[in-house]
Design a protein around this nucleic acid. Structure first.
Lengths: 160, 160
DNA sequence: TATTGTTATACTCTATAACTATA
DNA sequence: TATAGTTATAGAGTATAACAATA
């Protein structure tokens, strides 16, 4: 059984007055709500490419960092090493990436995208760009930039 | 076994140059990264109250909407009804909320917080406020306001 | 016939322990 | 002794189908 229900509900919304005013105070709640909308879109955009969010971001990271190792990827994407293995397996089985034993440390594997992987990655990324642009079309580009900066500031505020 | 590993990694970060430049283009990726930081904080803040994110938000919603039904709560928080049942069970067992059979529709239950539930809810909410204030202390309040507005605009852009 | 809450269940995601082969 | 990748497994979280009671 496939799972396609990661999408936000159709939300026909009966006229039932439910207030989330307390939760609305919080940045975290608002962040999650809007992320859910973007996530729903992204899942639909990636589906025709046979990619899930996690396989897509893994593919992109390998394309951006040729020769990187699974342990570094695990750190960068905050995916536990054991869970990354099956993701890498899937991408390798589809011949989108390759594992190559490192010559300087034979415990490790260097990861690289194949030509097909690079092409799929670029197509998916372009589709994402267009999808996000559509979603953010009514938001001033300057405000978008400010928002990205602020989000990074929040992210970096962890531990300093 | 409790699960306390929802926290973001200590991130001692060896000097390995890993770039996420392509993913950084995307609002969704940045949103998720900063949400993860807020989420880590929130989990730690709620833990002393014996609350998880989902039990907390459920409790808050019931406090804000006395008499509301499970089906409406399910819609509002995008939790499937069957999954909400066990959450409501847990809150009721702890005597933080009460189920009361509706007099106008005997299939339904009206949900209300108990005094203990109201008090716990208020304490947890205050702890959250302080935690978020700490996390956002270096971000101009005007920019925070703009950010909330923009997040809501993104959220509402789904289907319109 | 449809809806509310429920039970049972399955699938995905995420986390941990322990192994192997190297270092 | 420690690390990279792996295996197996357990635990959350989330999804669907089907039922009883009621509308």
């Amino acid at each position: 059984m496939k799972q396609v229900k990661k999408t936000v509900k159709p939300d026909v919304q009966e006229p039932v007055h439910v207030s989330d005013k307390t939760l609305r105070e919080f940045m975290g709640y608002n962040l999650k709500r809007s992320f859910n909308v973007i996530q729903s879109e992204l899942i639909q955009i990636l589906e025709p490419f046979g990619l899930r969010m996690v396989t897509y971001s893994t593919l992109v990271m390998i394309a951006d960092n040729p020769g990187m190792r699974q342990s570094h990827l695990s750190d960068a994407l905050s995916i536990e090493r054991p869970n990354l293995v099956v993701i890498i397996d899937e991408l390798e089985r589809r011949e989108l990436i390759m594992r190559e034993q490192s010559k300087i440390d034979r415990r490790a594997f260097e990861l690289r995208v194949t030509l097909a992987g690079k092409q799929l990655c670029e197509k998916a990324t372009e589709a994402n760009r267009q999808s996000e642009a559509r979603l953010l079309k009514d938001i001033d580009p300057e405000i978008q930039k400010l928002m990205l900066q602020t989000l990074n500031k929040i992210e970096k505020s962890y531990d300093g």
